[in-house]
Design a protein around this nucleic acid. Structure first.
Lengths: 344, 344
DNA sequence: TTGTAGGCGTTATCAA
DNA sequence: TTGATAACGCCTACAA
């Protein structure tokens, strides 16, 4: 019966270096307490046999797990699904810089959304959570606040002053998109929005309003189409635009998916994107580069978001009493051919 | 000075139920050793105070971490980047069913690819690894084999008989795509492939060859365009096709990205996709639904892959001496408008 | 400056 | 069937 190879432990080092385990521990955690010669000897042994303290074993006395929990979005849902790679990568990378790692979990459809968090928290398996896909009323936030479990959220929510969050300035982004369209000579600009009631959707819509106001253009409700998320909604949206007495010259979409659908339908209806109708999306999905013409879109700085989230979470873990400090980041407009050239 | 809320431990349960901690432990881990009445009493307390054994504390005596390590692909690299959500979700979900969780790590560009794995392994922080983006010669595999660390790989590799893997039958997939094109009446079919030397690329190319052979069509090297991964390569590819004395009526692309680029260039050059030229991609990226016309593509069963990988890994962890059993899964052809209608 | 011992929350072994 | 008790690997007093 063969045995598993066993890791090298602090005892191996202590034996080999002829010092006590306490001293070895100090070499890694409090080197200043160890005489220089001893420290060097011990370090040499550590390097030689490649010893690393086990996270598991460290956790017990430290009452920390050095682990951060993140619940994956359901595949293909609105939100981070298509940009998960960038977001997660930065989360993991930044966490690593703080000596932390990221563990994943999911929740099953139909299940109480806080159940998965509660299970993880009960086992005491993480030091804190990163939340994404938040909304106005998010039961997870209420739960984590009341349970006094450290967390940070990607996205504001009701009671945002009570916790740490990072959010993208959707309104500002849309204003930037509108400014771009104004620059190109557009005046009659439509917006395809989601139904009212989502934090990011309402935020982006507000940017549309502010931009019009800043330009002194009256708000025309006919130019605002409300549809659900998804490509098919883009078909519907274009159809509605075509029923207007006069087609707008440009349209800002609340998400890329809708823009893609709108462009597809435009092709079928003989509307030339970029020439007859300028289109701007939101999210800057990879597919913006794949469609024809390529889609101008607002790129969320997901790397920065991930980084900041972890920094805030670490701050809260180490500093639970401090006042929540949160951050707003700005999207960047990536101009491509769908918003076309300056109008005559 | 406020103290953290502390989880409920096995001691809390034992005190409250008036039994020893050993008995409580048995209630969760070996209920048959406990008298029914005691078991019920203890269980009632557990339910009442919501006790769950801590993974961290369990790990120490068990010499297992109940954690599986996965290194994220670099954002936007060829491979799982754009379909990470589906793959990861299934990995995590299946692992959970086995009482395991998934921890992430990354490696920094330029760093020795096995370094990140070695660090994690040294700390003994995981029970095994899931590898993706493997290739013929993968140093990670050699390292993990020699270190006797359990792992499974998404993708075959040299020496595939020595470890457990799951791979997608790329050749079979391309054959299916070719059969579809034959059915539509195509005979002169091009392939846009990657440069030789990648496992999945060569595999897919082989499917092209087999399909021609099966149909008794001679292999024409002019119809095989070799380009690097990426949208721009699609532009190049179409250009090359257009230089041929006669344009093929259909083209199979080794990846969707190339197909997207090819379609974009086709638009600019006045080639009508679906009518003049049928196009099939590989990967079934979300963007297949966003381009116009929508792209016919081979969908990899990433959910099944993730599930099988975890099952195999658990098998290896519990059964390290058993002979490696591996699995091949088949992609599914998703037919959309880019492969057009039957030819006259 | 170093060594020793107790404890972190579990599980496993052995007596009772 | 149950209860003590000794690990597991590490950290942190505290003692030497």
């Amino acid at each position: 019966m063969k045995r598993f190879k066993t890791r090298t432990t602090i005892k191996d080092v202590s034996r080999r270096a002829g010092v006590s385990v306490g001293t070895v521990s100090n070499v890694t955690n409090a080197p200043h307490l160890v005489a220089e010669t001893t420290r060097e000897q011990v370090q040499a042994v550590i390097d030689e046999i490649g010893y690393r303290p086990s996270r598991t074993a460290r956790s017990l006395p430290a009452r920390r797990t050095y682990l951060i929990g993140y619940r994956l979005p359901t595949p293909r849902e609105r939100g981070l699904s298509q940009t998960l790679d960038v977001f997660l990568h930065e989360l993991v990378e930044t966490a690593y810089g703080h000596g932390l790692e990221v563990v994943l979990f999911t929740s099953r459809p139909g299940e109480d959304p806080i159940e998965a968090y509660r299970e993880v928290a009960r086992r005491g398996d993480v030091d804190g959570f990163v939340l994404s896909e938040t909304n106005y009323e998010d039961p997870r936030i209420e739960y984590l606040l009341s349970a006094e479990i450290p967390f940070v959220a990607f996205g504001r929510s009701r009671g945002a002053e009570r916790f740490r969050w990072v959010d993208v300035d959707g309104a500002g982004g849309v204003e930037e998109a509108m400014a771009h369209l104004f620059d190109l000579g557009h005046e009659r600009i439509a917006m395809v929005a989601w139904p009212e009631g989502s934090e990011s959707g309402d935020d982006r819509h507000q940017g549309y309003c502010r931009a019009l106001e800043g330009r002194g253009i009256p708000y025309d409700p006919d130019l605002v189409i409300r549809v659900e998320s998804g490509v098919e909604s883009g078909h519907v949206a274009l159809d509605r635009l075509l029923r207007l007495p006069e087609l707008p010259t440009a349209v800002v979409c609340v998400e890329d998916l809708i823009a893609f659908g709108l462009m597809g339908e435009a092709g079928r209806r003989g509307v030339r994107i970029g020439a007859d109708l300028a289109v701007v999306g939101f999210d800057d999905l990879p597919a913006c580069e794949y469609v024809h013409p390529r889609l101008t879109s607002l790129s969320q700085p997901l790397g920065e978001v991930g980084r900041t989230l972890i920094d805030l979470l670490v701050d809260q873990i180490e500093n639970p009493e401090a006042l929540p400090a949160s951050t707003m980041v700005s999207p960047t407009l990536v101009v491509r051919e769908s918003s076309g050239a300056r109008r005559a």
